[in-house]
Design a protein around this nucleic acid. Structure first.
Lengths: 203, 203, 203, 203
DNA sequence: AATGAATGAGAGTTCATTCAT
DNA sequence: AATGAATGAACTCTCATTCAT
């Protein structure tokens, strides 16, 4: 029987995690421009000094948020199964995330804009985008060899377009663009891949 | 007695422009997060109080930058000519701007992320995206009626994808994504529109 | 007739000087340990931000105090006249300063203790002590050649002793040691130099 | 199961001593200005809360350091033997301490400067200086009565000068003043006492 | 005897803004 | 039209201290 903390309500599962989550939410709503350590601490209900107990500097807290956001994004990357199953699963998970977790995309947007001024962040994005692109291209190639997709596809250009379009979708305030734009765009991906809508992105 | 004021109106009507341009550059390099009125004033070579003479608040200065950026973007919108010429011209100008003026796209990115927190800016983007989308869709439709483009195109979805992809392209630090990614993506637009590369985006 | 500032009460001769003087007083009474920029600003009657307008950092303010203290000390160094007149004048001025301006000596004490941790300050003291020592020794030597002082004096050791004793005198809280200790010590200098009290340190 | 507690009383009776010694070292190197309880605890390798277990406040810890420093200084005070032997022994021990334990003198310097703001410390110094002065004067007087020293000495002034000079010697950063200055100054003491160098300060 | 976690009170510093000139 | 000087409010970060365990 595992008993981490005896008293139910006093349990503080992880202050670090709470603080990162609060900072994440603040960045999503106010941007880096409006990120204040005091607000983050207040959101968690602790003193500002407690925040500094866990994260010596604001920068360290931001690193925590970066790790959190990138890790959540990484979970959409292709997993197991045949190439076409992986590809569809990946796109499906992305579409879900895009529609359900606006916050994550907002934070990723903030991070992308920050990257040029943040050497380490730049490295992270370069690596992550590189992995994403080559996985996508590799999947398309294998699907073509497979016969699961039509030949004649420019897998390189297609992967680039898809990534770029998804990044664009993540940006807020498209002309009253609600979630339906995401559906439309993913439908276009289907056309480009030569997959009829009824075979595409249906669980 | 020295007369500093050469002409009545002081012959410096473009202080405002200079200040906006300097703020624009600062936002491009440091983001809103790093925008300091003192830096802007220093870049132009005037006192901070002088900046406030022209722009009573920092917000007012930012309004100036917004106007400047949106106007530059608007210049890429379709102009004169037959539908297919307008479409190709629009895309060509966008591609040029994308490759030549990274600063503008960075600032637009910052503005987009700011929009959810800035009612007015949100309105501006919603309107501007709406205009963009309907012009693009209208052009495609007319090209199809024209016979300049293949029928069977989902002009609505296509316009959406193009806008979204261009927005995505504007974000910095794609995995070592240099200007060639933009070319690749626009090439994919050609495929989607059914235009062979040699007819597309050649001046 | 010189008229620096027309309006009498509004005249602020020099905010920098006022701030340095206030910091000097605070160091004299509370030590570096108790130096607070807010207190300094309050003493002058200005906002804390005003202090930073003149001195970008606390360190810069401290530099100002160092310059002020060293300059006041330097004014006691030997000036004009025959060697014996210079020597007596120098010692006389030191004795006066020692008895009249306890603050200066306290601050000098704080500075001396700070020197090992402050490269620049260390340099300043090494130079200043070097100048002091060689001037003193030079004067004694010339007095001896002059016949104004007895031969057989170890001018080097004597100069060292005098400097060291004066530094010691500058430290606070000698056993109820009031100003009379300073008189006693300077009297001993007289004996060492072979000068009868009635010829020594009388204006 | 490992049993950390070897003996009942935990065999660590000198935690206090360790903490005081660490605080002493910190004051010697960084001054009171730079004394941080956390650093002291870390130097000893214990938690900050453990420090507060032994010393409820920072002030209490400082009291410990004061006691430690004053006690070490007291050990140089005159002990047993004929007056002239006591005098020479005292001065000899002082000279040794001056040359060997720079840390002690630095800490004493810090304490002296603190005395005006610390009632208790002021009392301690006043008493200690008083004892020192009267012992020194008493010894000189008895030596004179003894015939061990020349008559005609102003024992009061002489004792004052010696104390003051030793205090001055304890201050750091005399112009490249190394240990040799201490020798020079003590040699001057010999002249003042009428003791030829070969009889003075030789073990 | 010892600790990890938490905190209140402040420290130095920054910044948009104001105002007399 | 332009500025030097000044400020209030806020920010990140620090530190001695406390307390439950």
């Amino acid at each position: 029987m595992i008993d981490e903390h005896v008293s139910g309500s006093d349990a503080r599962p992880d202050r670090r995690r709470e603080l990162v989550a609060a900072a994440f939410r603040r960045i999503a709503s106010d941007g880096f421009e409006g990120l204040r350590t005091r607000d983050v601490a207040a959101d968690v209900g602790v003193n500002i000094a407690t925040l500094h107990y866990y994260f010596p500097t604001k920068e360290a807290l931001i690193r925590g948020v970066i790790g959190y956001a990138m890790q959540r994004f990484s979970q959409t990357l292709p997993g197991e199964g045949t190439p076409i199953v992986q590809l569809r699963g990946h796109l499906y998970r992305l579409l879900q995330l895009l529609k359900e977790d606006q916050q994550l995309w907002t934070v990723l947007g903030e991070l992308v804009l920050r990257a040029p001024r943040d050497e380490e962040l730049g490295r992270i994005f370069r690596q992550s985008d590189g992995v994403w692109h080559s996985k996508l291209k590799g999947l398309i190639d294998r699907c073509v060899q497979n016969g699961a997709l039509q030949p004649m596809l420019d897998s390189d250009g297609l992967a680039g377009l898809m990534i770029v379009a998804i990044k664009g979708l993540s940006l807020p305030t498209m002309a009253g663009f609600g979630p339906e734009v995401a559906d439309q765009v993913f439908e276009q991906f289907g056309y480009l891949l030569g997959l009829p809508p009824d075979q595409f992105l249906t669980t």
